[in-house]
Computed example of a mutant assay.
Amino acid sequence: MSVKSRRSLLFASGALLAVAAVAVPVVVGTAAADPGAAGSGNQARIVGGNQASLADHPYAVYLTDAGGNQFCGAVIVSSTSVATAAHCAKAVAKQDIRVVAGREDKRTSEGQVLGVSKVWVGQGYTDPTQGADVAVLTVRGQFDYRPAKLPDSGDAGLYAKGTQATVLGWGRIADGGARSDYLRSGEVPVVSDSECHSAYTVYDQKTMVCAGYAEGGVDACQGDSGGPLVVGDTLIGIVSFGDGCAKAGKPGVYTRVSTYAKDIEAQAKPRLLG
């Protein structure tokens, strides 16, 4: 079994950029690692999903390198910050990360492109399979778009087995699939902790949550890492890793946002303008 993050590999000026956690040993297929990413023209979108609208999900954004190559997703959590996966934040130097907001179709110039001034990574993060796969990026400027809500102590029921959630991203539609120009979404049910542990021995119910169908068919994929898993407008997960994409018996694994909500909120407080 080869578990991988679901981030894209980046190609710049014809040279492959080495990206941390692209092929994480023992990790199932993280939504970030995308061997045919941006410059290669082989990146795609949510597997088994549909085209989505930023009118419904204005907090969905994506990350590019300085050359404009999309490698991960992210989610607006305040007027000045986005949450993403730690392995995405560590994939590209801070000065080269760009956050693209309000751009449903990547072929357009709509929305905003903001640089990053600060990167916070979950304490103790080493790789997606060990948990703490969460990061907050503070941008230079402010977003014009509504943030997602963070879960609170009264939202424990959102993690109950069978809860229907929505995963969003611009990643592959299948392993090796073609690149998507549009935001995509997929509806997936939350999976019980016991079922997820049966699928992944590395599963940690404190830091992770799984979502997907027993028969597979709908899932995040390469290029989607760092993107949101939401119930309504509440962020319950961040795309982290998986075994391939949409395989039967192999649900997607997400960072459990409720565990890190206070940290995210603290890091995401808008800067005071003086």
Results as ranks from 00 to 15, higher is better:
Arg140Phe: 02
Asp105Cys: 04
Gln130Arg: 15
Gln123Lys: 14
Cys88Val: 09
Val100Thr: 01
Phe143Thr: 03
Val116Glu: 02
Val116Tyr: 01
Ala135Lys: 05
Gln130Phe: 10
Val116Phe: 00
Val75Arg: 04
Asp96Leu: 07
Val77Arg: 06
Val116Ser: 01
Phe143Pro: 02
Asp96Glu: 14
Thr126Ala: 07
Val116Ile: 03
Val92Asp: 06
Thr138Val: 12
Gln123Tyr: 09
Val116Asn: 01
Asp105Tyr: 07
Ala83Val: 15
Pro128Arg: 11
Ile97Leu: 12
Lys106Gln: 13
Cys88Ala: 05
Val82His: 05
Val121His: 06
Lys90Cys: 11
Ala101Ile: 02
Gly124Phe: 10
Arg103Pro: 00
Arg140Glu: 13
Val136Leu: 08
Gln130Ser: 15
Trp120Asp: 08
Phe143Gly: 03
Leu114Trp: 12
Lys106Trp: 00
Ala135Ile: 03
Ala93His: 08
Val75Thr: 14
Asp96Met: 07
Ala132Gln: 12
Lys90Ala: 15
Val75Asp: 03
Ser109Val: 13
Val100Ser: 01
Ala91Arg: 03
Lys90Gln: 15
Trp120Arg: 00
Gly73Tyr: 06
Trp120Gly: 01
Glu110Leu: 12
Gly122Glu: 03
Val134Trp: 01
Val121Cys: 10
Thr80Gly: 14
Val136Glu: 04
Gly122Ala: 02
Pro128Ser: 05
Thr84Phe: 09
Ala91Thr: 06
Val99Thr: 00
Thr80Ser: 13
Gly111Gln: 11
Gln123Ile: 11
Glu110Arg: 13
Val113Ile: 13
Val100Ile: 14
Val77Lys: 06
Ser78Arg: 01
Asp127Tyr: 11
Val116Ala: 01
